[in-house]
Amino acid sequence: MKAKHQRLILVIIALLAIAGAGLLAAWSLRNQANYFYLPEQMASDPPEVGQAVRLGGMVKAGSIKTEADGVTVNFLVTGNTPDAIPVRYSGILPDLFVENSGVVAEGSLGPDGVFLATNLLAKHDENYVPKELEGMGTEQAAKMAADTTVGLK
């Protein structure tokens, strides 16, 4: 076997492996990616019960309620419309989880319409929500949330 042929074979093997990886990635990404929902989208076109999705929006003021076991919280997530999605989460709330701030909940929609969160992500950026946000209306706050929660529009 000449050196040139060997190089050709190596290139083909490498290309095959990379293409295989690409195809595998494309196939499993279609199945495994978590789709992102805004509250208004979830209200109008809910995902299937049990399907892993993400819900992102603002924690509604005054909606955070803790259950009797002391570790389960219920709250409402709102977006740019009055639609609010109830969310239930068991665990310690993230550091930046406060009312009127952006949050991304990972989990799935339950049969009763309550979003069961397995994980809550609150943005930790040094460009924290400024004090001016206090006292703003929901709509303005939602706009602020869009700015402070990167990737949320």
Binding site: S28, L29, Q32, A33, N34, Y35, F36, E106, G151
Partner: peptide, 9 residues
């Protein structure tokens, strides 16, 4: 379409 990709992938 907004998605996130995590450990399951």
């Amino acid at each position: 379409v907004r998605v996130s990709v995590g450990p399951p992938y």
